[in-house]
Design a protein around this nucleic acid. Structure first.
Length: 287
DNA sequence: GGGCAGGTCTAAG
DNA sequence: CTTAGACCTGCC
């Protein structure tokens, strides 16, 4: 029932592979939790973003957006895959740093997805002190229970990520029932503050990084790392620089001066993602 | 089976 | 301002 053709067929939309585009790196580098490698088709991922189901294949010089119109590609996926950013230029700007240059070369197919800001906020709250399989499981169950079904001729393709209101209505107990553990009260606080307008995500979108970080950190359970991830992956603020255990390890082992002047620049977040992916692959952590 | 996972909160110095 | 412990749960 889940069979799809790897080649473009009627109803699909195909483009030439953009520079610096590798779906395996894009979806396995840990930035996004709702896309999964297809078990039946090579170089194919299935996922949901912005209340739409996408099956995507990268093959024979093409990227195929299955069952997708040109209009939907231009309206949703062009932006989602950040196709207007020139990653070769970004990588070029890292060439003076030996470690970063090596990590960039290794990870050159990564693009920072422009995900929905609310979904990114929730997802990275859930990610704290947690592992990827469980994070994905919680998000899927949360969507099934509190999201809306995404319908097609073949039935229900999946569920959209729940709105802030839906998670408010679920209540802390409803969220705890999803096995979110101590994060339930954090997710509830985020949902309440966004739903009430105390936190305004479109205002945060307009803010400079230095203002946006503390604005998000007003939410319980949102610290510097979750705030930076939210801004990098949910607001496309490429200067946000999340420091997790892996990046911390790189910083302490290769930048013994402690200072990380390279990482306060405008594309520090992209640098972070290259370093993160590079370090995890070197340590055989397959996401 | 037990440690650990893309952290953050809280309570103390 | 810096630093231990605790924390839900279920992978590895």
């Amino acid at each position: 029932m889940d069979t799809i053709f790897e080649q473009a067929v009627k109803g699909d939309y195909a483009i030439d592979i953009p520079k610096n585009f590798d779906i395996n790196q894009i979806f396995d580098c840990g930035q996004c939790f709702r896309f999964n490698r297809s078990e039946s088709c090579d170089n194919t991922y299935n996922g949901i973003a912005f209340s739409k189901k996408l099956t995507i294949t990268q093959k024979d010089g093409k990227v195929i957006f299955h069952n997708t119109s040109k209009e939907e590609f231009e309206k949703v996926w062009h932006t989602f895959f950040d196709l207007d950013t020139n990653y070769a230029d970004v990588i070029g700007s890292f060439s003076d740093d030996r470690v970063l240059a090596e990590a960039s070369a290794f990870s050159s197919g990564i693009r920072i997805l422009r995900q929905d800001s609310w979904e990114a906020l929730c997802s990275f709250i859930i990610s704290q002190n947690n592992n990827i399989p469980r994070i994905k499981g919680i998000i899927e169950h949360m969507s099934e229970k509190y999201g809306k079904p995404i319908e097609s001729e073949s039935g229900i393709d999946g569920y959209s990520f729940p709105t802030p209101k839906a998670l408010c209505d679920a209540g802390e107990s409803g969220l705890f029932a999803l096995k979110t553990g101590f994060r339930a009260k954090y997710i509830y606080d985020a949902a309440s503050k966004v739903e009430s307008g105390e936190i305004n995500l479109s205002e945060i979108d307009k803010m400079k990084l230095e203002d946006a970080l503390p604005a998000l950190e007003a939410i319980k359970g949102v610290g510097p790392k979750v705030a930076a991830c939210t801004l990098l992956f949910g607001f496309a603020k490429h200067d946000a620089f999340p420091i997790d255990v892996w990046v911390k390890r790189i910083l302490s082992s290769y930048y013994s001066d402690g200072a990380s002047h390279h990482f306060s620049e405008k594309n520090a977040g992209i640098a972070q993602q290259y370093l993160f992916y590079y370090e995890r692959c070197k340590n055989n952590i397959f996401i």
